[in-house]
Amino acid sequence: MSQGEAAALDHEYTTTGQPSRKMLMWAFIGSECMFFGTLITTYLVYHGHNVQGPYPKDLLSVPFISVTTFVLLMSSLMMVLALSAVQRGQKKWTRVYLFLTPFLGMIFLGGQVIEFTHFAHSGLSLSRNLFGSTFFVLTGFHGAHVTVGVIWLLTLWVQSLRGKLGPEHSLTVEIAGLYWHFVDVVWVVLFTVIYLMQGVHT
């Protein structure tokens, strides 16, 4: 939603007192929970059903992903600081944190590219076995969500560089933050389910 729309609508009367845009994001996140919940269930249902390798334990590297997971969690911290800076009208810190948030997200995505490439070289693909199908679809959709978030946050960062992101636009940043934190929380679940629980079933 545009800056103009934001300014026009944020001050309108609403029944709940909450801005409609923010409620929209919460409702959308509810829908996304069902989306990722279904994908995660599919992953778990098919866990251990591979008829041929490579198997999860052959490929998954917990130390490597722990590092990129930490980077993604730090990006959530940057997001919190960015929102705080916007609300206080601290222009310089807004720019710094609004850059660091998507930058850390891009490092996470880079880690995913490295991991995917390594897996592909080891013979894993969408069509190789059920691990390949479920792993690439589940983490791929998460990566796509991170990519959308990175583009969104970089757009806000450019707006802040142009001086068009003052305290009156803090709601815009807050909503982007809701999305970003949600995507991070999903990763925490994926990290647990895919990497930490890999030995539970097989």
Partner: peptide, 13 residues
Amino acid sequence: FGADFYRVAAGGD
């Protein structure tokens, strides 16, 4: 893309 989700021979259900 030839994934295996609904392919019984590959363990799909």
